[in-house]
Amino acid sequence: MSVRPQPVLSRQSRFSIAQISLPVIVGCIFVAAWHLAVKASGSDIFPTPWQVCLGLGDLARQGLLLKYIVASLFRVSWGFGLAVLVGVPLGLVLGWFKLAFTALNPFIQILRPISPIAWIPVAILWFGVKDTAPIFLIFLASVFPITVSAMAAVQNMQQVYLRAAQNFGLSGLPLFRRVILPAALPQIITGIRIALGVAWLVVVAAEMIAVNSGLGYLIIDARNAGKRYDLVVAGMVMIGLIGLVLDLLVRRLEKFDEVRWGYGQR
């Protein structure tokens, strides 16, 4: 009996050239098309890529770029962190205890489709224009995807794991810790990834209204104070790049041996 060889590593290295060069080529085409389109239209308001780069340089020199990024990340960390702390246990409980599910699920399903944007006036009323308001909005936006994915993970767990665990005499907390949580973890991490994307979307929206720092504030302030569209687009670019980095970071969680089984063959 021999183990099958694992071509995973060699295959990755074979594709790595394409994996880097293809996106770079697409990016170059996009930037070139953008530049030509601005030139062709003769617009003096919408910036070329180069003007955006200059704008980013200005922001960096004034120390605003780093300050705003830190401010936005600070709010996301709090709102998203709280959402994980609340959403994962809540979802596990809802998935496991039928009574809790029956009692709370309709309520959650009613709250869930209400856009975080709709909560902005309420958040300002409750928390004023301090950091608390955007943190609350980010929490609201990300807690539902996390809760729902943890809940579904427990409900859709393969029954054979549960039976095997019960066969070995596990129940209560040890059953939860040794089998239910690890069985649900891959799907929980997927929910956390989706929620982080949503949290990042919402921080920008929240900062456009409630506060005076952050990348969302930068965008709305640059437009209001003299139609600085180079800075508007600079803010957008930074939001996109940081969103990409955040997603890559969470994706690393999916590489751990304890959860890799849950993501099929990739």
Binding site: Q158, V160, Y161, R163, A164, Q166, N167, F168, G169, V179, P182, A183, L185, D257, E258, V259, W261, G262
Partner: peptide, 29 residues
């Protein structure tokens, strides 16, 4: 009255825990 650790079921669909290594699985009980 229920499953018992002295009498273990071996499942058709394989009940080995995928989040544990081989030795952790064998030592599970």
């Amino acid at each position: 009255s229920g499953p018992d650790p002295g009498r273990i079921f071996v499942f058709q669909e394989n009940g080995v825990f995928p989040w544990l290594t081989v030795e952790q699985n064998i030592g599970f009980g």
